[in-house]
């Protein structure tokens, strides 16, 4: 797991707010994730200490619900389709281009957490293959150069 510095003090108001409420684990985790974008281990340890809920229980809950991320995600989400049509049209080349161009691996993020790359399967636009989604925006007929350019143009 990547260690990033987080300001643990940011969750103090949340822990204060829910101090008297029993069973408030989920809202605490939700609010914590709102702050950091994911659930950093340091924050989990702090929540465990202050709430008295064991760290194992916290992770048991956090891993149960689809909403919670235990790993940081980049500011920008890049999704490349590797469905059949996109695959034969060179989706793998796009993946390699993004991996090399932004110092990350598929399924992960770059060290600065600017970008997260996900592989998805068939977005139903095979006629425009290969397809990529950058922050939800669809790009069709993508090339290695064009996807890198599109990503670099993000703020």
């Amino acid at each position: 797991m990547t260690v990033t510095d987080i300001d643990i003090g940011l969750i103090e108001p949340i822990l204060q707010e829910f101090r008297e409420q029993k069973g408030a684990v989920i809202p605490i985790l939700q609010r914590t994730q709102d702050i950091y974008g994911y659930l950093p281990e340091d924050a989990m340890v702090e929540i465990s200490k202050k709430s008295g809920i064991s760290i194992s229980q916290l992770y048991g809950v956090a891993t149960f619900y689809a909403q919670f991320n235990l790993e940081p995600r980049g500011r920008h989400l890049i999704q490349i389709c590797d469905g059949t049509a996109c695959h034969v049209k060179g989706a793998q080349k796009l993946v390699e281009a993004v991996e090399n161009g932004f110092d990350l691996e598929a399924g992960g993020s770059d060290p600065d957490f600017e970008y997260t790359l996900e592989i998805v399967y068939c977005l139903g636009s095979c006629g425009l293959a290969p397809i990529a989604l950058v922050d939800g925006q669809v790009y069709g007929n993508t090339t290695a150069d064009s996807i890198v350019k599109n990503i670099k143009e993000l703020d």
Binding site: K22, G23, A24, V25, I26, P27, L29, Q30, I53, G60, V61, F64, Y65, A66, Q67, F68
Partner: peptide, 26 residues
């Protein structure tokens, strides 16, 4: 109001109750 956190099984009443109690929604 209690907000769910993304688990279909919490539509089952005992799982929903577990979830309100702050547990895994089992």
């Amino acid at each position: 109001i209690k907000e769910g956190a993304g688990a279909f099984v919490c539509g089952e009443e005992t799982a929903l109750i577990a979830s309100i109690e702050g547990k895994r929604g089992e």
